[in-house]
Design a protein around this nucleic acid. Sequence first.
DNA 1: GCCGGGCATGAAACCGGTTACACGAATGTT
DNA 2: AACATTCGTGTAACCGGTTTCATGCCCGGC
Lengths: 374, 374
Amino acid sequence: MPPLDVVAPDPPARRAKARGYNRHVPTLRELAAVCNVSPATVSRVLNGSERVRPETRERILAMMRELDYVPTRAARTLSTKESGLIAVILATAAHPELEHPFFQGLLEQFRHRICEAGYDPILLTGEALGAGDQYYVRRLRMHNVDGVLFLSVRGEDVEIDELRKTGIPIVAFDPEGIGPFAARIQSDNVAAGASVAEHLVAIGRQRIATITGLPETAPSRLRLEGFARALAAAGRELPPEYVVPGDFYATSGMAGTEQLLTLPEPPDAIFAMSDLMAIATIQTLQRRGLRVPEDVAVVGFDDIRFARLVTPPLTTVRQDVDTLGRLAAETLVAMIRDRDLEPPTLTVPTTLVVRESTGGSTLEEDARSVLDLL
Amino acid sequence: MPPLDVVAPDPPARRAKARGYNRHVPTLRELAAVCNVSPATVSRVLNGSERVRPETRERILAMMRELDYVPTRAARTLSTKESGLIAVILATAAHPELEHPFFQGLLEQFRHRICEAGYDPILLTGEALGAGDQYYVRRLRMHNVDGVLFLSVRGEDVEIDELRKTGIPIVAFDPEGIGPFAARIQSDNVAAGASVAEHLVAIGRQRIATITGLPETAPSRLRLEGFARALAAAGRELPPEYVVPGDFYATSGMAGTEQLLTLPEPPDAIFAMSDLMAIATIQTLQRRGLRVPEDVAVVGFDDIRFARLVTPPLTTVRQDVDTLGRLAAETLVAMIRDRDLEPPTLTVPTTLVVRESTGGSTLEEDARSVLDLL
DNA sequence: GCCGGGCATGAAACCGGTTACACGAATGTT
DNA sequence: AACATTCGTGTAACCGGTTTCATGCCCGGC
């Protein structure tokens, strides 16, 4: 049976009412009308302009609170070309940074800092998901993104040039194949590689090998450079068969270890260029009946939370994610505010954290450090 | 020396030129003019309207490509109230979901799916960062967010009601203290808890204990419910001192294990309600000279990548992150497109993955499973 | 008492898409 | 042949802030 009253209320409004969210959100003009001022004055209050009489300002601010006024970012963006959004570009699904523990800390610190500066991060991916309108450069242009943070650029990214043409400020972490138009943030990979080599020499290891990250990436090359140079300085060889390529992820750590164990002279120390690979290395060695650190010492890179939780706890190079994230945020915000700023290159020192996987720390020390975990 | 020509070009334009990004981005109206059509027609092509003659459409599409036209989202948002943004709400810094491996997979799958549907995720945090304009509800209203994904709502969130009033579609994962206005996605925690209990009984353990997650959270309560019920069904006791509270993170796993070991009758099996806690549990047991699984069997929850890399590989409950992420995305997009949709509650089954920490799998099986890692 | 200047405020155009409505041409109906 | 309908397209208002320029006021100086 059709209802008796033929005049149906406006459907969307009725639905809204039914769900209880018919609260009208005022516009700037309505707010201005209520306050008996012009839209321009309200806008000035919103933007903290000096040119407003204090009592007028207070009256408007009070009314904003009372009406629960929130300015519409889209309108402001349309007018000013500033969106308050910063794009964080993740790489392809094949190497999901988001799943790499190291990047999480970096990202959280970064997010926190840019939020304080009034920006919000929007997550995009370098991966092309079929249709062209899913390319990140297109998305980021649509959204009028104010700045871009790149997590581990890889050389083959054909869109980098497209991105450069937009003129949007860019900060890249551990960049490879990105021009000087982008700021760069990185750990001191050369010094870090050297510190690992020196440690392994100091504890008396004779046959020192390494499983690298993706060979074409900057962190991988630079760590190897410092590592090899320090070994040479100590009068040690680094034969080619002791350098096996990995990709930073766990599986390649297993494969690399297997490969090293087939050598006529297997190493007595392995430097894996990520903690994920190092942990896989320990696991593989133990499966083969080898003891860590007695038979083979293992060193990782990153100092992810898990590093101290594996058995034995992992000696590793700590990257200062808080500083890295903070600097990335500060640099990007500075570049947004002053477009003439020359993009800097910042290098952050690392710390070698010695634990049991190289025989370095006692059980008591380590138990204490575990309690530092959140 | 000042340059001879006194008339300085427009400063911003000059800077842009100097950096090489003076490329002019056309507007819809300019594009329309070039194509000898009205803005309305271009807009119709953009939005896939049927009412355009095919040859006109082609001409416009070709010109879009040639001029590298990208529509400005802000203008469309202003007009349609749809921003193409979906907010992902992380909790406070005290419990950084982003660092919890389980959420990464969920988030990546979610991101991937909503991206295909034309949305991009914006990261917000429940934490109030000082000033009021950093509250997430304000941010999300500013940005005209189309939908919200909540990761692990906690009961004390005072802003939930503010959020509800906005009427924005919400999907919450493992929700606690959120009303029926939000869709809920969760693993079948009761069945999962029961499957763990049954497994531990089946392998003949006598003194079965558990370290829970945050006691006030839904997953923690539900897993305990299933666990206790299944133990009772098998005629086993679950004395109160065998239930110690944790918080899903590693440290609480250590503390909980220590606590269990001080009991007059320490357990011979421990169910930790997250892999992070379970791994900390194994580590702690080994430090105390206890063997896993011979002396104490350990079961975790989540099946994070590390679960199979620790020694011994961890028996755990696998949450189907791909399905969880996909369902969250599909549900949210559906709710955005049809605001009348009743918010569903979806429960996804889990799988018990038996590995060596309960003595379950052989070395060979496990080595194979490790190779499944990406 | 008149004038210049600083200050608080207002009027109106503008940012770039969207869309309701109008309109002419082509097609179909009787 | 007259008329209704559908189709393709254009006109213009609108979304909600921002910003330039104008204006009116009050003040101090001469």
